[in-house]
């Protein structure tokens, strides 16, 4: 187990190096320049050159990359250029990280609450009306982009129903958990439904697969009650592949939060990276994307470990 964990952590190193290189390259290849954004209408060539030199933007590409990488390895994510000039990027991320984590967690909970029961019911009532209805809803859920759903929700709840919590914006925990959660609800729904649809479809097919297994027939032949068979034979075995999908969705949730946070004006990490992109704030974009990569690697690892917990065949892999 510990050996496995170490192996996975060592394997993560080349992944991170390649990711860091790609992130850095993409940011620098993309057109636009933070200095020009910073100076606005006063575009003095001499001033531009001086600022470029001061920030090291005139150095050759590989030197810039290695400098950045060296600092990142020491835990220094650099200073923001345009989003909040001179502020440490690490500090900016730290301020906003909790918002994104809250959004992602809330969305995931909503997704699971919708997906697991509907997936189970859909499979148990295969090809009946309730199955068809949930599959149509699932298809709609996957197809509607979450930013669009977000706009619709704001229009309906915020504008039409005139609910203060339905118009976007963020209320910190310090001003009451209830209000905080109320404001988080619509963004979490907008973000969660698409994943609910993906997880539900996976749950349904994993259930159908488990239902056709021989051990289900054995359990029936032993007179086990149907509810018990659903719980311990079907759902328990169906969850194994679904956990992988759930794990992957957490990664997507972090990515999806970028758009959702913008639609709902939530001051999260996704919102930060959008600002970074608009204002060509290289250190901010690089740091945020890198952190998303790190989080995904960690989540994948956690998912793999959960897998072993659910499936004894993996846990005791070597032993017979």
């Amino acid at each position: 187990m510990i050996v496995y964990l170490l192996k996975r952590l060592i394997l993560a190193i080349p992944t991170l190096l390649i990711a860091s290189f790609l992130i850095f390259s993409l940011v620098h290849i993309a057109p636009g320049d933070p200095i020009r954004v910073m100076l606005g209408q006063y575009q003095d060539p001499e001033l531009i050159a001086r600022l470029r030199e001061a920030m090291g933007l005139d150095l050759p590409f590989h030197v810039q990359y290695l400098r950045w990488l060296g600092k990142v390895l020491q835990g220094d994510l650099g200073l923001s250029i345009t989003v909040k000039r001179g502020a440490s990027v690490a500090g900016l991320i730290a301020q906003r990280f909790s918002v994104t984590v809250e959004l992602a967690t809330f969305s995931l909970i909503i997704a699971l609450l919708i997906a697991i029961p509907t997936g189970v019911i859909s499979a148990l009532r295969q090809n009946r009306l309730s199955d068809h209805i949930s599959r149509i809803i699932a298809l709609a859920g996957v197809s509607i982009p979450n930013f669009f759903l977000g706009i619709l929700l704001i229009l309906f709840v915020g504008v039409y129903l005139r609910q203060p919590w339905g118009a976007g914006g963020y209320v910190p925990f310090s001003r009451g958990l209830g209000r905080n959660l109320a404001h988080m609800f619509l963004p979490a729904v907008a973000l969660g439904t698409a994943y609910a649809a993906i997880i539900m479809r996976m749950m349904r097919s994993a259930m159908l697969d488990a239902m056709s297994q021989d051990f289900v027939r054995t359990a029936r032949a032993m007179g086990i009650a149907p509810g018990d068979i659903v719980r311990r034979d079907i759902v328990k075995n169906a969850l194994i592949p679904v956990v992988t999908v759930i794990g992957n969705s957490i990664g997507y949730l972090l990515g999806g939060s970028i758009v959702t946070e913008t639609v709902f004006r939530l001051p999260g990490v996704g919102n930060l990276v959008i600002m970074g992109v608009f204002r060509r704030d290289f250190p901010v974009i690089q740091a945020v994307v890198l952190i998303i990569v790190v989080v995904r690697i960690i989540i994948n690892l956690v998912v793999d470990l959960t897998y072993g917990f659910l499936d004894p065949r993996i846990r005791y892999g070597g032993e017979r």
Partner: peptide, 25 residues
């Protein structure tokens, strides 16, 4: 009533023991 009979009065052993047992229990 059949559920009470299955496993208690009439029982069945299937051919493939690996797939006939629940791998997670």
């Amino acid at each position: 009533e059949m559920r009470r009979i299955r496993g208690k009065e009439i029982s069945m052993v299937f051919q493939d023991s690996l797939s006939s047992l629940n791998p997670t229990l």
